[in-house]
Amino acid sequence: MAEAVGFFTDTSVCIGCKACEVACKEWNQLKGNKPAFLADSFDNTGKLDEENWRHVAFIDKVPDAPTTTGNGAAWLMFSDVCKHCKHASCMEVCPTNAIIRTEFDTVFIQQDVCNGCRDCIAACPFGVIGFSEQTATVHKCTFCYDRLQSGLMPACAKVCPTQAIQFGPLSELQKKADARLATLQAQGTTQARLYGRDDKVYGGLNAFFLLMDKPEAYGLPNEANAVLPRRNNRTGYLGVLMTAALGVLAGLVALRDRGGTRRAEEALRRCGPTGRM
């Protein structure tokens, strides 16, 4: 097993140029969705899906009354990507084992194994995975598995002009992120925080973030909501078991109801063979 790698995406220096989106599409030969004008910000990509494995979200924080200059926080720029979760919801449910963890500790969908059941889409809490009509399978960020195998860094990290996307061994990135957070805090940017750096969100994310607001503001589940699909197995089956027990009991009662049989037969005798009361 090679060393675990990761992305440290530092949203505080992202300028929203979308070079990562373009480089990703270039390298991975994604033709992208048909252009659409979404009219809710300068972002027309909209979301991560089968054609968009990096998505730079523009989150509108422009104050209604222009009181201050906004201190650089009028827009939150957020280059979103598959988080390559340590405890990955997608991998947990996949019935074909198409989703595997690679030797680089990244999460990868094997295209020749996936049969397009879409259970992983229902599971991924970040809305990362999309179904492609073209291949009839699902797709997401591969962490440039092919580039990693050739000793190259992923295309998005390579191209990012501000180093908002940093690539490297996970442990090194975590140290860098801690230092960066300390610097920002020292400068009084107290809203800065790390997301997925520790194990509170899905056991830790290989693609983790420095955020300038609450996770929810970026469309990311907070710690309380970062829960795995399998949490509902035990209670779900318990509900089934109770219902089955009551259902079978109901059957037993109906079938063994001797009094009911007698009453029914008396009623029948009274109304005679025509069957009408």
Binding site: V93, A122, P229, G236, Y237, V240, T243
Partner: peptide, 25 residues
């Protein structure tokens, strides 16, 4: 099938554990 829906992160489906029982009843 009800449990399958609950074992996800979808709204509604994953917010209840009683779908399996409901489908059975």
């Amino acid at each position: 099938t009800g449990v399958l829906l609950s074992v996800s992160n979808q709204p509604i489906w994953s917010d209840t554990w009683a779908l399996g029982g409901l489908f059975l009843a």
